[in-house]
Design a protein around this nucleic acid. Structure first.
Lengths: 181, 181
DNA sequence: ACAACCATGTAAGTAGTTACATGATTTA
DNA sequence: TAAATCATGTAACTACTTACATGGTTGT
C-alpha cells in the first residue's frame, strides 16, 4: 500500500494541510496514485500517531488550516520503504472483461462505452501533453524535475497505450458483430 | 466491479467448479482480472442466490465437484451490464510513487526493486508471446478467437509499456544519484 | 444575517486479502 | 495407514468508497 508513502513524499516537497494534499492528489500526484479526501485525512491521523509527521495550525490568509510537516522519523521510514520489495499490483482491466463478455453474449451496447472511454483517455492525453509542454519550458534541468518529467511521460505513454488498445477493441468488435449477423 | 461478470463469462464459455475457475483465473482470465479462490467461492454463492447460475454435483474422475452453469437470467444480466457505463479505474502505480519518493529522499535501494519488477515484466512478456504463438497457430479465425487474441495482444503491449517505463526510470535515477553525489 | 462553501472529519458499506478449517481423495 | 493434496469453504482484517455531519469563513 503506497498511500502513506505518497503522502510523506508530498509533505516533504511542501508541508500542507489535508485539503491542500487532496487538491494535489486531484492534480499531479493523482495521475499515478488516486486518493479521496477521506482517505487522506484518516491516513494523516495515522502518520501523526506513528510519529512520522507533526501538525500545527497555520493561519493562511484568514483560514486556519491544520498543516502537517514530516519529522525525521518519517523521512527515515520513507528511506526504509524505498529499499523494500513489493509485488506488482494485480492487473484489473474492466474493459477487457467486457470484451470477453461481448464475445460470448453479443456486442449489443458495448461500443458506446468503449468510445466513451476512448474519449476520456484522449482528453487525459491532451491534458498531460499540455502539462508536459509547460513543464519542459520551465524546467531548469534539476534531477528532481527530470524525475517528474519522466513520470509525466510514463503517464502519456500509458494513455497512448489505452487509446491504441481501445481502438483495436472497437475494430475487432465491429468484425465480430458482422460475423454474428 | 467486474468479478461477477467475469465469472458469468467464464461459466458461459464452460460450466465449471470453483477450483476450475480459480485455476483459469491464474491463467487466461487472470491476465486482465485477478481473483483469489476465496473471492471466487463467495461470488459464486452470490451469483447462485441471485438466480444467475445454478450448481450441481458432477463426478469428474472420482472427485465430486460442485459445478456451476449459467441460467438464462445470468445471460440477460451479462447483456444488461454490457450496455452500462463504468468510470475508468483510478490509476495506481506504486513504482511511480517510489520514483517520486526517491527524488526527494535519495535513490538508495530503489534500483534493485525496479530491476526486479523489470525482470517480472520481461518474464510475463515472454510467457504472453509464447501463448500468442500457440494461439495464432491453432486459431481457426472465429471472431471469438480474434477477440481473445486481441486481448492477449493488449496484454503484450502493456508489458512492453512497463518494460520501457521501468528502463527509463532506472536511467533517470542513475542520473539523479550522480547529481546528488 | 443568511447562503454558499471550505476544511475536517465520522459512519457505514463494499471489495479484496490473508490466515485458517474441514472433509475427501490420492500417493507414498 | 499416514502424509500430501484437492475442493470448498469461514473468519478476520485492510483498503477504499459513498454518504453524511459539523463548525468555521466568505460573500452578498
Amino acid at each position: 500500500m503506497s498511500l502513506p508513502h505518497a503522502l510523506l513524499t508530498s509533505l516533504i516537497e511542501r508541508p500542507s494541510s489535508g485539503s491542500e494534499l487532496s487538491a494535489r492528489f486531484d492534480r499531479s500526484i493523482g495521475h499515478f496514485w488516486h486518493a479521496t479526501h477521506q482517505q487522506i485525512y484518516r491516513e494523516l491521523a495515522k502518520l501523526e500517531k506513528a510519529g512520522w509527521v507533526e501538525s500545527f495550525f497555520a493561519e493562511e490568509g484568514e483560514r486556519k488550516k491544520k498543516t502537517y510537516r514530516v519529522l525525521a522519523a518519517g523521512r527515515e521510514e520513507l528511506k526504509r520503504w524505498l529499499a523494500t520489495e513489493e509485488p506488482p499490483l494485480p492487473v484489473r482491466s474492466p474493459l477487457m472483461v467486457r470484451m470477453r463478455a461481448a464475445a460470448v453474449v453479443g456486442t449489443q451496447g458495448v461500443v458506446p462505452e468503449l468510445r466513451r472511454h476512448l474519449r476520456l483517455h484522449q482528453e487525459k492525453l491532451t491534458h498531460y501533453l499540455a502539462l508536459q509542454a509547460r513543464d519542459e519550458a520551465r524546467c531548469q534541468g534539476s534531477s528532481t524535475e527530470l524525475v517528474q518529467l519522466m513520470i509525466l511521460n510514463s503517464g502519456i505513454q500509458l494513455e497512448r497505450y489505452w487509446i491504441e488498445t481501445i481502438e483495436q477493441a472497437i475494430a475487432v468488435l465491429a468484425q465480430h458483430s458482422k460475423d454474428v449477423t
